[in-house]
Structure formats: C-alpha cells, structure tokens
Design a protein around this nucleic acid. Sequence first.
DNA 1: TATAAAAAATACTAGACGGTATGTTTTTAA
DNA 2: TTAAAAACATACCGTCTAGTATTTTTTATA
Lengths: 200, 200
Amino acid sequence: MEQKQKSELTKQLILDESFKLFYQNGFKTTSVDKIMKATNLTKGAFYHHYKSKKDLGLEIISSTLQKRVYDGMITPLYQDGNVLDILESTFSGRLKSFSLFAKKHGCPMNNFINEIADEEEAYQIALKRIIEEWKAALVHLLERGKKENTINKSYSSNAIATYLISSFEGVRGIRKLYNDDQILDEYINGLSLYIDQLKA
Amino acid sequence: MEQKQKSELTKQLILDESFKLFYQNGFKTTSVDKIMKATNLTKGAFYHHYKSKKDLGLEIISSTLQKRVYDGMITPLYQDGNVLDILESTFSGRLKSFSLFAKKHGCPMNNFINEIADEEEAYQIALKRIIEEWKAALVHLLERGKKENTINKSYSSNAIATYLISSFEGVRGIRKLYNDDQILDEYINGLSLYIDQLKA
DNA sequence: TATAAAAAATACTAGACGGTATGTTTTTAA
DNA sequence: TTAAAAACATACCGTCTAGTATTTTTTATA
C-alpha cells in the first residue's frame, strides 16, 4: 500500500501547486512546466498521473473548487437558525473572511467560469454542477424560510438564489479593480438591504 | 489627409478584429499573429501602429469597451421618466437584447476584469474608470429618484449601485455555463423584485 | 518628377508551449 | 531472489509566442 500512498501524495502535491498557480495567473497561462517546477518534480511525473493539462483542470474543478464552495458557501446554509440570519452571515461573513490574496485574485471558480467555460463543454459541465448545488442549497434554505414564515412566500426561491449568487460572484470580480475594501462594504450594505426585504 | 485616413482605418480594423478575438477566446490566448491574420495584414503593420500587445489591450479597454458600456448601460440612465422604470428597462432590456454569441461569451469587460485586472495595474486603472462612471451614472439616477420621492431615501445609493452592477456582471459570467436562458429569466425575476423594493 | 516620410511586407529571433519517447529507479508480488 | 510494474527523470519534438530588423510600397509635398 505504500506505493499507492506515495502516488496519492504526489497527485495531491500537483493539485495543490497547480491550484495556486491557476488562481494567481489563470488556467491558460499556467504551463505544465511551471506547475512541475513548483512541485520540484518533472514533467514525466505529471504525465504519469494526468493524461493532459485538461484532465488536471477537470480534477481541479471537481475536487478543489467543489470543496471550496461546499465548505465556504453551501454547508453553512444547512445549519439551524433563522433563515435570514444564515443568509446574511454566510454571504457577508465569507466576504469578510477573505485574505488579501483572495480579494486581489477574486473567486477561483468564477475565474475558471469566465476564462474557460465558453470554450470547452467538459469544463462547462463540471463548473455548472457546483453552481447548481449551491443554488439547490439556497433554494432549500429559502423554502424552509417560507415554511417558517420568515421569507415572503410570493417570491421565487430560484430567482432569489440566482440573484444572490450572481451578485456575489460579480463583486468578487469587480473587487479586483480596487486596492481597498470600500466596494465590498458597499456590496455588503446592498446585500443586507436585499436580504432584509425578503421578509414575510 | 488621405494617408491619415487610411492609417485610422487600419487601426480601426485592428481594433475591431482584435476585439472579436479577445471576446471569443480571451486576451492572453489571442496572439498578435491571429489578430493580423484576421485583418489580412501583417505583423509589420501591427507594430507600426501599436508598440505592444499591451498597448492594444489598453486601447481596446478605453475605446471599444468603454463605448459599449456607455451605449448599453450608461446613456440610457440619463433619459427622462420614472427612475424605477428606467432601472428595470435598462438592465433587463439589455440582457434580453443580447445575441446568442454575447450570451455564450459573457460580458467582454467582465472577461477582461477577471482575466487580467489582477496582473497589470495599467489594465486595472483603465477598467476601473469604466466601472466608476457606470456607478456614478447609477448613483445620479438614484439620487434623482430620492428627490422625486420614488426611491427610499434611507437606502445608500452607492450600495444599490454596487449591488446592481455586481449582480449584472455576475450573471453574465454564470450564463456561460448554460445553454438556455433560464438563468437569465430567473435573474430578471430577482432583479425586478429588488428594484421593486427600492420604492419610497 | 524628385524626395522624404509613412505604411506595410518579409524574414527572422529566442524562448515557451503541450506532449512524447525513452530512459532509470523504486516498489510490489511470486 | 527475481521479474514485472509503477513512479518518476531526461531529453526531445514540432508548433506557437511577442517582438525586432530590414526592405519594399505607397503617399504627400516641394
């Protein structure tokens, strides 16, 4: 079993280093050479574990990116408590928790979406899966709010979920243009106003 | 004057063709060779008119992109009429007017922002200028609404403007993941709900 | 029509790119 | 202990990249 363990470790190293580089410099302009330089391994190792750069990209999406969104934006939605509070704390709390690096480089998933989703259907499908699960979690939470009479029943949960996700991903891109957090503060302000108006 | 005219024409041709290619395939992966192949001119012509690819990128932002946002999203905000109606018609109207191509490839400005705004300060500044002017136009409209008592005076115009822009740019990215307009319909639904709640 | 300047064409670098072919070393199983 | 297989290393290929140097063509002006 020792061999399989080492193999897994190497794959994880490639995954970790490539994610960092994709996040910093984009997917297309990060070469396999650069990735393997960061791992201190060689190209031979890369092509032993992945059949292509595209193959690696798909695994980054379905493992690293998926996990990030789950941990940061989906799992928190399933906690107990007031629906409006959960919405507010999940969205604005996550924004406030970002490092300078994360603010500068935006949302890694959104970066992938904007860079390659319109070029390869395989990427599109893998990324869509994450968004759909995020949306489903939001809809589930909003439906609970309607049952508990904290969310206005006349509003479409799908519409609210889509609007929330869109604005969140949007501002993570726009923040790249600035060197301070004013735009994030304004966003949180606008978000808070929006959530407040979802009340029953 | 004929020489200057021809020169201007060539520059415009390079601008037009490169914009199309940047829009379709991204800035980084569109080479000068590809651009000049599309113009049926040679690389010599390119480097006669532009000192670098970066130089062209900056001109694309400050001319082509700027004009697009002005025509589509800023100028309409200065028309007469009910502020809420103008907001709704400008945002949802623009979304509905997009071609299949524009839906597939998202917002060219947002693509630039996500691809290169975190890598070169010169790009960042040029792109920020557009967003700031868009925001200023929205704030101006919202302030008018407050004066006319159609917009709730207790809401921050800056926050609303930021939230509107964020959600719009966000959904234009997310739409890339889908092959139909359902996500846009949901967005428009969510937007309409949001605008409705800005009332005084 | 001669001349100078602008516009564009041609030919070329040096390095980076994804991917492959073929080694060598390490681990596993008999 | 040995042979096969897995894990990597090394060297390389053809293609593409931004940019440069040089030459030819076109245009404006005197």
